[in-house]
Design a binder for these strands. Structure first.
Lengths: 296, 296
DNA sequence: AATAATTATTCGAGATAGTAATAATAAGTT
DNA sequence: AACTTATTATTACTATCTCGAATAATTATT
């Protein structure tokens, strides 16, 4: 038996008219008649006494009607439960490292929200370590990290490659150049990420590759503090261009591109392997992956 | 949604295995998978987290499972109710006038019971007036009467035509004849039906037709008393042959056929027009109607 | 008895659910 | 980390079922 048939039966009993019931369900009178016949056959009982017009319910018909009502009521309740669930479960928890600014995520988030306007997308900024921990705990659905590390229980997808630039105070002599040779950084006062920050390794690699050794005067585990340190001309640093857009606009920081080549910090999307993302979250991941390999 | 799908889902949840669920329902594993997908699509929710094996229920899945269980339980209850109903409602109440003996009905009843052995066929003997009253009240499904009267709310079908014979005591001189001319009944002591018994009119008609007037010494409203009166040689009567089979066998009564022509008492099946008979009762009526016009 | 209103039946077209075969995926094993 | 095994998903195709339009049959009314 079909829920639709049950609903049709109930409506028929209440309307006492085949054609109007058919209209109500946008089907033909014939279909209603056939469904009724089928129901009666399936249950080996007569539900209507057709010798009278309008028809009257037989005892079996009354029994069937009550059952259909009960069943449909429970079915409706189910729908309420499910829709309530879908509203709350359609919260996507995304966590990003500090250094991936709103500037990078914004276009994706904007596009996502236009498709799924009702989804509650929560974005929080954490350090990479915390992201992995919460991801595995299940507190986070999607993580965005720099230089993602492989893990057996985590799926990693490439996200954007962020261009790295030299960043300094407007007071600093470097700020006057249009381009800079990375070798000029030799011996410069440098504000670095702490060792545990993945970006640190990335930047160290680049410097090492060009045989440049800087004078690390300060280390911070987050990009905001690094920027504040550079602003007061404590030193220079190498940072993702996208993470200093606000400061460039306000003029509190200057960035100078490298003349040698374009350096990038790879970023990635991390997701727990055994976590079944809902449709919306899947779409968001797809969206982010489309940015994969793109340079920002 | 389909009840079968709900059952499949519940079994799947309990067995945690698509193939075994499929076996249980005698369908392919593919079908189970497709049904699941369809259910999820119809309810716009994921019920299973397929990233794990064996799969685990999502929150929506748990909600759905509970609802399915409830619905199936109510559905089972419905079946119990209906089958209980069909057992009691498959009682057919048939009422016959006294004068239609078991001899006439027996072959029909026998054939009927061979087809519907579980049906509770109740046969009671009432006078015609009572049969019409109870038929209209709904206490009786099928009535068997002599010389049925038309009525706007009753359907009448012909049943057998019962041969009428002269009945007398073995003591009576008529008992020696093989055949008798109806004119010989002129002035005979006659045991008659009371006026309100339809057969009375039938027999009166026949006598009148031949210009015979009998001497009615007694009137009874039922055939049994008439027979007892004849046995003690209080008089003769005209009765249906089939109603005196037992007495003929035991020799307490004698019957003599009329030489003039064969006289018949027509009998009929009466059914309320607005009463929807169940399959079994319909079959019984069909069976009886096949005897329509037959002479017993 | 004729008519109007309603329901049942028939039949062809389109939708649906099923199967078998195959691909994809998760977990266990070397 | 690459295989293997066990399980589930997908695909392509077929048989079945449902629906709608037209028509027949039935009930109630005039």
């Amino acid at each position: 038996m079909n829920m639709e048939s049950a609903k049709i039966f109930c409506d028929l009993v209440e309307l006492k008219n085949f054609s109007r019931t058919a209209e109500l369900h946008n089907i033909s009178q014939s279909a209603v008649s056939q469904q009724l016949a089928q129901l009666e056959m399936a249950h080996k009982a007569q539900f209507l006494n057709r010798k009278k017009r309008p028809f009257e319910l037989t005892t079996a018909g009354q029994t069937f009607y009550r059952a259909c009502k009960d069943i449909l009521e429970r079915y409706d309740q189910l729908h309420n439960e499910l829709s309530a669930l879908s509203k709350t479960s359609c919260k996507i928890n995304l966590a990003s490292i500090f250094s991936i600014g709103m500037h990078t995520l914004q276009p994706y988030v904007k596009q996502f929200m236009s498709i799924y306007p009702d989804v509650n997308l929560s974005i929080e900024y954490l350090d990479a370590k915390e992201i992995y921990i919460r991801l595995l705990k299940g507190n986070i659905d999607i993580g965005v990290v720099a230089i993602p590390k492989r893990d057996r229980s985590i799926n990693v997808y490439n996200f954007v490659n962020e261009p790295l630039t030299m960043v300094c105070s407007p007071e600093h002599p470097f700020s006057l150049s249009q381009e800079i040779d990375i070798h000029h950084l030799q011996g410069e006062r440098f504000i670095a990420f702490t060792e545990n920050v993945p970006s640190r390794q990335c930047i160290d690699e680049i410097l090492k590759q060009f045989g440049v050794s800087v004078h690390a005067v300060m280390e911070f585990d987050n990009i905001e503090t690094i920027k504040r340190a550079i602003e007061i001309n404590s030193g220079i640093s190498i940072l993702p261009q996208t993470s200093i857009m606000a400061e460039l606009n306000s003029g509190t920081l200057k960035s100078v591109a490298f003349m040698n080549e374009h350096f990038y910090r790879p970023t990635g999307i991390v997701i727990r392997k055994d976590c079944q993302l809902n449709k919306a979250a899947q779409y968001l991941v797809e969206l982010l992956r489309k940015g994969s390999g793109n340079d920002v």
